[in-house]
Design a protein around this nucleic acid. Structure first.
Lengths: 194, 194
DNA sequence: ATGTATTCTAAGCAGTAGCTTAGATTGAGT
DNA sequence: ACTCAATCTAAGCTACTGCTTAGAATACAT
């Protein structure tokens, strides 16, 4: 067997993710990618086929990344409303520190795409939303069982609300200050705490 | 005095607005603009200086456009909570008809921009948010005066909430169906109606 | 050591980006 | 009817886009 790869595919994919996250799909050139990923264009194309496919793999990576870092507390089997509240108020702190300025890669991409979106990318975006909504549904069900949320809550309805809330959050993190974001969250949560 | 313009500047600006709205700033080429605006590149540059400046004028136009059509009911001097509710439920109907798929030009642009946004464009985006929030503040104050909203409501806090809510709405209009959007709105409004 | 399948380097491809320019065309003021 | 400043046409500028390719470099199996 011949020469071996000089780079870790998963590692350069994570670097690509950050580039797309900061600049967006359209504003990220392959030249910039090779600079930030630290590998040559040839290697990018031989490992990831083309720019679009690299981006799609990036979106998968992003889902994994979000699940393991940002959403880790919400993914616990028994996560409940209090975890969600802590998550949201923790997000305000991220805004204060300027660490949420890039928003959410998936929401940004949703905004960037035409009404006639690329279907392959659209599928990957939807997977992310399904993932997040599943997390939220789980939290609501746990909280009903724990008695923290009224048992006759319409879980589907509230999970749609919270999914939209979090998408809004990722946008206002880019154009509102800490106080405004805190206001948004505190009023939004009045609907859930009994 | 010499030859006169063969086109109406304000009219071609409106056409440019629609192109940017559909495709986003980065994905709109000057070639596409000249096709859709119906005038030559030379005319674009002589009337609007360059692409970025055309876009900035487009954002001004968009604010004017939104105020006169989408937000017309909310801009009435005595607009109140009921007008806001009607507006939001009317928006669900737009989603149902597929007329909200492009989202909001300003929110889309916010998502498209880097953390280190072009400052000239950022200023124009902020003007839009100030405009919308002013509208919302007015509605809240009117409703307090009319007795439809509790007089000890923190107007600033709730206007931040509602501004975020509307930004979220413009995003989910691109990736959620009618039912999901209706859920989002109906839960969101529980906070305001007494 | 040698063979060889794979990786890496770096140059280059056609297509498109934003923008400019020379010259023909226009039409109100005289 | 003529003037002339402004408009429009169409070609072309440089820079950059995503992507490809020929050839040198590599490292495992023999």
């Amino acid at each position: 067997m011949p020469r071996v790869k000089a780079y870790d595919k998963d590692l350069v994919l994570e670097k690509a993710m950050n580039v797309f996250w900061i600049h967006g799909y359209g504003n990220t050139s392959v030249r910039l990618l090779e600079k930030e990923m630290g590998i040559n264009q040839f290697s990018i194309y031989s490992s990831f086929l083309n720019k679009k496919n690299l981006f799609i793999e990036t979106l998968r990576k992003y889902r994994e990344h979000a699940g393991q870092s940002l959403f880790s507390s919400l993914r616990k089997r028994n996560a409940g409303i209090n975890d969600l509240k802590e998550f949201l108020y923790g997000f305000v702190e991220l805004v204060r520190q300027g660490k949420a300025r890039n928003g959410c890669l998936v929401v940004n991409t949703t905004s960037e795409m035409d009404a006639a979106t690329d279907p392959d990318i659209a599928v990957e975006l939807q997977k992310y939303f399904v993932f997040v909504q599943g997390m939220i549904r789980n939290i609501l069900l746990n909280s009903i069982q724990a008695g923290d949320v009224s048992p006759d809550t319409d879980v589907e309805k509230y999970s749609n609300y919270l999914l939209g809330l979090m998408q809004g959050l990722s946008v206002i993190a880019k154009n509102m200050n800490e106080k405004q974001v805190a206001d948004y969250i505190s009023v939004a949560l009045l609907n859930i705490e009994e």
